[in-house]
Amino acid sequence: SRSVIRSIIKSSKLNIDHKDYLLDLLNDVKGSKDLKEFHKMLTAILA
């Protein structure tokens, strides 16, 4: 869910600018399909 993804971003080791950017992107995501794609992208970034 959106709140879980937000929590993953906030607890990541990324610097604050990257976190803010990803949180802004997350706010722009519409629909469950796009949310799944965003989660895939985030997982790849944090891997």
Rank of each mutant, 00 (worst) to 15 (best):
S32T: 13
S3P: 05
K40D: 08
L42W: 04
S32G: 14
K10D: 03
L46Q: 03
A44D: 10
K13W: 11
S11Y: 10
I16A: 15
K13Y: 04
S7M: 13
R6D: 05
I5N: 02
H18A: 10
I8V: 06
F38Q: 00
S7H: 14
K10Y: 11
R6L: 09
R6W: 04
D17C: 08
I5F: 06
R2S: 06
I16Y: 07
I5Q: 02
S11D: 11
L46W: 04
Y21K: 09
L23R: 03
I9H: 00
K30H: 12
V29K: 05
K33N: 12
L14V: 03
V4P: 04
L23G: 00
S32M: 12
I5G: 01
K13H: 12
I45W: 10
D24E: 13
L23S: 03
D28H: 11
S1Y: 15
S11H: 13
H39A: 14
K36C: 05
I45L: 10
Y21C: 06
A47E: 08
L22A: 03
L25H: 03
D24Y: 12
K40P: 01
L35P: 01
H39L: 14
I9C: 00
S11T: 08
K19P: 01
G31P: 03
D28L: 13
M41V: 05
R6E: 15
H18R: 09
M41C: 04
S12R: 01
L25N: 02
I45C: 03
S1A: 12
N15R: 10
K30M: 06
K13A: 11
T43W: 12
N15Y: 06
K30T: 08
A44M: 10
L23T: 04
Y21T: 06
V29F: 03
N27C: 05
I8F: 06
D24R: 14
K33A: 08
K33C: 04
R6S: 10
S32Y: 10
Y21R: 10
N15S: 15
N15A: 13
K19C: 01
G31Q: 04
S12N: 01
I8T: 06
H39R: 12
N15W: 05
L22G: 00
S1F: 15
I45M: 09
R2T: 05
D24C: 12
K36H: 13
K40N: 09
I9T: 00
D34W: 06
L25P: 00
A47N: 12
K10V: 13
R2K: 14
T43H: 09
D20V: 15
V29C: 09
A44I: 12
L46V: 07
N27R: 10
D17K: 15
S11V: 05
V29A: 07
S12L: 05
I5V: 04
L26A: 01
D34Y: 07
I16D: 13
L35W: 04
